[in-house]
Amino acid sequence: MTLHHFILIIHLLAATVWVGGHLLLAICYLPTALKKKDPHIILNFERKFEALGMSSLALLIVTGIWMAYDFGVTAETWFHFSSGFEKVVSIKLILLFCTFICAVIAQFYVIPNLNEKNINRIAIIILSVTSIGIAMLILGSTLRYGGL
């Protein structure tokens, strides 16, 4: 097994936790919370998942950048969109930035004021981050064939 293959396995395991956790939240917990108008259902899940989820996200960032460099996509060529690999890496970085924006909005604006009347706001954030995670997973799968 090469080092790149090992890094890929770590990346895939972290993606499983990150995307899987958000799918679990979006499919199992969110509908119940919305139906009952109970934000504590979401907050309790977030509290339990946060350490594992954030660790997984950190691993995704580190291993993703590592593999990008293995493919010759360095910081100097990010956002050039000139090769299939550069396109995928650049789009994934843009989506990572979108995830970060969602996290900032959630942590500083939505969660501190979350209640049964505005629970739809956190639903939008949850569905956005879940959709972004799925999009990143799909984009990553294209690298096997040279990217976009």
Rank of each mutant, 00 (worst) to 15 (best):
M1I: 05
M1W: 01
T2F: 00
L3A: 13
H4N: 12
H4I: 07
H4L: 07
H5W: 04
H5S: 15
F6G: 05
I7T: 06
L8S: 09
L8G: 08
I9Q: 12
I9C: 02
I9E: 11
I10M: 08
H11K: 01
L12V: 11
L13N: 10
A14W: 11
A14D: 04
A14R: 14
A15S: 13
A15Y: 10
V17W: 02
V19S: 04
V19T: 07
V19P: 01
G20K: 10
G20C: 06
G20T: 07
H22C: 08
L24A: 00
L24I: 04
L25D: 01
A26W: 05
I27K: 01
C28R: 09
Y29F: 15
Y29E: 06
T32E: 11
T32C: 07
A33I: 07
L34D: 06
K35Y: 08
P39G: 06
H40V: 13
I42K: 00
I42Q: 02
L43N: 03
N44W: 14
F45V: 06
F45N: 00
F45K: 03
F49S: 00
A51L: 15
M54E: 15
M54H: 08
S56M: 10
S56H: 07
A58Q: 09
L59H: 08
I61Y: 10
I61E: 09
V62W: 11
V62T: 04
T63K: 00
G64K: 01
W66C: 01
W66T: 10
M67A: 06
D70T: 06
G72M: 00
T74S: 10
A75P: 14
A75C: 07
T77C: 00
W78R: 03
F79I: 03
F81K: 04
F81L: 07
S82R: 13
G84H: 04
G84Q: 07
F85H: 05
F85D: 01
F85L: 05
E86P: 00
K87G: 08
K87R: 10
V88H: 02
V88Y: 02
V88G: 08
V89Y: 06
I91V: 15
K92T: 07
L93I: 14
L93H: 09
L96N: 12
T99H: 13
T99L: 12
T99V: 09
C102K: 02
A106Y: 15
A106R: 12
Q107M: 11
Q107C: 06
Q107D: 14
Q107S: 15
I111W: 13
I111E: 12
I111D: 10
I111R: 13
L114W: 13
L114K: 02
N115Y: 02
E116L: 03
K117Y: 10
K117M: 09
N118D: 12
I119E: 01
I119C: 02
N120V: 14
N120A: 13
R121G: 05
A123C: 12
I126F: 03
L127R: 02
V129F: 04
T130R: 01
I132R: 00
I132H: 08
I134T: 03
A135D: 07
A135S: 14
L137K: 05
G140I: 06
S141F: 08
S141N: 14
L143C: 09
R144K: 11
Y145D: 12
G146I: 03
